[in-house]
């Protein structure tokens, strides 16, 4: 099933008041929204949390009125982006004149890059569970070989080769996929 179709089904279930569907939707997009706020716009701490919570609260309140043909992902990206820019503007108003970086309202990491990262994570979810887990722990959660070895109960000496094999499996899977070219540096 295409991502947009999965989203449409989730949104439909949320509209019917299905709390489990909402939990799933938040789980599905929490990293994405978080990345836009933190990696995209460099927000940290309370500012990042405000943007994160407000984006999901707006999504929750607006889902019933969201047009069927509106894709959830770009809509959520746009809402998060606007909220992040509002925070940056508001912070700028409190700073002495002239100290605001002129490009502060431009994403530090392109949204396209974050979109491509989400595509990769979704592709990763189709790999065998052990591959998904080890790649996520090492690259996204920044866990050490030791931590991973203990958590997965495997010898520490095998972690590097497992990561390399799983990464290659994912790379092969992604070849030919239509990810945004500019996302690959």
């Amino acid at each position: 099933m295409r991502d947009a179709d999965v989203d449409a089904l989730l949104v439909a279930r949320c509209r019917e008041g299905d709390a489990d569907a909402w939990r799933e939707l938040v789980e599905r997009y929490s990293r994405y929204v978080y990345a836009i706020a933190t990696r995209g716009f460099g927000l940290t701490g309370d500012e990042a949390e405000d943007v994160f919570q407000e984006a999901f609260t707006r999504a929750y309140l607006h889902l019933p009125g969201l047009r069927q043909d509106v894709a959830l992902r770009p809509w959520l990206a746009q809402v998060t982006r606007r909220l992040a820019i509002d925070h940056i503007r508001s912070r700028a108003r409190e700073q002495p004149e002239g100290t605001l970086e002129l490009d502060a309202q431009e994403p530090k990491l392109a949204i396209e890059q974050i979109d491509a990262a989400l595509d990769v994570h979704r592709a990763m979810a189709t790999l065998p569970e052990h591959c998904h887990e080890i790649l996520d722990r090492f690259f996204a959660r920044d866990e050490s070989y030791r931590t991973i070895a203990v958590a997965l109960d495997v010898p520490m000496g095998t972690i590097a080769s497992r990561i390399a094999r799983c990464l290659d499996k994912l790379r092969t899977h992604l070849e030919g996929k239509n990810l945004h070219d500019s996302a690959v540096r």
Partner: peptide, 20 residues
């Protein structure tokens, strides 16, 4: 996407850390 390297894939995985 063509010619994606393992490093590209690793970098993209790293862009999406879990939210608290």
């Amino acid at each position: 996407m063509t010619d994606i390297t393992a490093t590209d894939v690793a970098n993209l995985i790293g862009e999406l850390a879990p939210a608290p």
